[in-house]
């Protein structure tokens, strides 16, 4: 029979079983959820969408690995969060972006925004969006938009005329002009100009459904965010048709990409469900505000970054109601009968 004295028994606190799903599994799921949008980008803008995205992912991973090495901290690239940041950062850039510009943004996102604050879980700004915001110093580069159907060259300067994106019309309150360039089906499927990963609402929604099914995110933030934008644009339309104005606003300008993949970033969004609702509404309000009154047309990017700044405040003040103190009938009964 077994000699029980020989066993090396380990005593640790319960629980003694854990789910298989770790941080890496979650990040890989996010990457998979982004693949449909990437595939569409290749179809819409050519192979360069893929090389730009891969370059950005590699850049983020390398910067993170090097930083952790130099700072003598335990290696974290294995959790794949840097790869996700790289992917998202490429997704919010035009396909014409030079590789070096992108690498600078990667460096800023990973080293300055994420690692200097302690790495995953500690940063308060969304690294991808902060990297993107940093690129506005190269505004001229960032506004070379390729037309849908372009076959952007993988190497060399990309010689494309600056093609109008839906955002430029929306920002100019020119619904009729926009309707003339793109019809709604094109807006929804993504045969439009814009950033690499933001054009196809359809593909982003596919990713959204996948993330929900895999329980990686809750619908709270995307629904309140998009819902708020929809409501406000419907109530205060610019142009002749409130419904069309609302739909163009939802499908244009990276709103869905931001609502599904950026605003739901774990680290920089509230943890409580109620807090997430507030956060989503806040993002929606600021987005519409910037689109209507702002000087830039990057409403989504800035609204999420601004809301990132108040997440600690939301987390501190919005907590779940304590168990056993709900105002249910039974509690009243207890108060009446107990004392």
């Amino acid at each position: 029979m077994t000699d029980y004295k020989e066993l090396k028994l380990k005593a640790s606190t319960s629980p003694h079983v854990r789910t298989k799903e770790d941080a890496q599994a979650i990040m890989l799921t996010v990457i998979i959820a982004l693949l449909p949008a990437l595939a569409f980008a290749v179809y819409n803008f050519g192979l360069r969408s893929l090389t730009v995205t891969l370059c950005s992912m590699a850049g983020c991973v390398v910067f993170e690995a090097l930083y952790r090495l130099i700072a003598r901290k335990h290696q974290t690239v294995g959790d794949c969060s840097a790869a996700v940041t790289g992917m998202l950062l490429a997704f919010v850039c035009p396909v014409t972006i030079p590789y070096w510009t992108l690498l600078i943004a990667d460096f800023f996102a990973i080293v300055v925004v994420k690692q200097l604050y302690g790495g995953i879980g500690k940063n308060f700004l969304n690294p991808a969006l902060a990297g993107r915001a940093f690129l506005f110093s190269w505004a001229s580069i960032m506004s070379h938009w390729a037309a849908p159907g372009t076959k952007a060259a993988v190497w060399g300067a990309v010689d494309v005329v600056t093609y109008p994106t839906p955002m430029s019309y929306l920002h100019a309150n020119d619904l009729t002009g926009l309707q003339a360039v793109y019809d709604l089906p094109a807006m929804f499927t993504g045969r439009i100009g814009g950033c690499i990963g933001e054009v196809s609402s359809l593909m982003i929604l596919a990713g959204f459904v996948f993330l929900l099914a895999r329980k990686v995110i809750l619908p709270n933030i995307p629904l309140t965010y998009v819902g708020t934008v929809a409501l406000l644009t419907f109530l205060f339309p610019r142009g002749n048709d409130p419904v069309e104005w609302m739909l163009y606003n939802i499908f244009g300008g990276g709103l869905l990409l931001g609502a599904v993949f950026m605003a739901t970033d774990y680290v920089t969004s509230p943890v409580s469900r109620k807090g997430q609702l507030i956060y989503g509404v806040g993002c929606g309000l600021i987005t519409v505000f910037i689109r209507y009154f702002g000087g830039y047309n990057e409403g989504v990017c800035y609204s999420i970054l601004l809301m990132n700044l108040v997440v600690w405040l939301i987390d501190k003040n919005v907590r779940p109601r304590r168990f056993g103190v709900a105002k249910t009938a039974i509690f009243k009964r207890k108060e009446a009968g107990g004392k």
Partner: peptide
């Protein structure tokens, strides 16, 4: 069955 890691990190 425990899947412990050396450096537990909260990803919020």
């Amino acid at each position: 069955e425990e899947k412990t890691v050396k450096e537990p990190t909260c990803i919020r």
